[in-house]
Amino acid sequence: MGFLKRFFRGRAGVQQLPTGTITVDRNGHVVTSTVASAYPKNLLGAIGRDVLGLFREARTAQMPLAEISLQFGSLHITARELRGGAIIFLFPQTALLPTPTRSRS
């Protein structure tokens, strides 16, 4: 079993984007998650740690922030500070869905 995978493992692949919500504690550990369980846990952990780092650095710069949004070409991450941890919303920016936070004023 898995014989063919040995030969085709190195082929070009694409990681599906995460969709859902995670909460991380003040140490960056993922506490709860609605992201598909197939999504790599280490990447969710990286998102949590990086987001907490942004909040921490903002406090150091004397500009504490309650919310941070990162807009990538195909993913939108919105994080709200939560007692030292954070709740993080992950929205893939696909052509199938409108941009969720787009202001139309």
Binding site: V14, Q15, L17, P18, L43, A46, I47, D50, L54, A58, M63, P64, L65, A66, E67, I68, S69, L70, Q71, F72, G73, S74, L75, I77
Partner: peptide, 20 residues
């Protein structure tokens, strides 16, 4: 943001916003 975008294969960083 650049590092995270590359790890997640989410494309280039368009902008980052913050609010208090």
């Amino acid at each position: 943001a650049r590092r995270l975008g590359e790890r997640l294969e989410a494309g280039p960083v368009l902008q980052v916003t913050g609010q208090n």
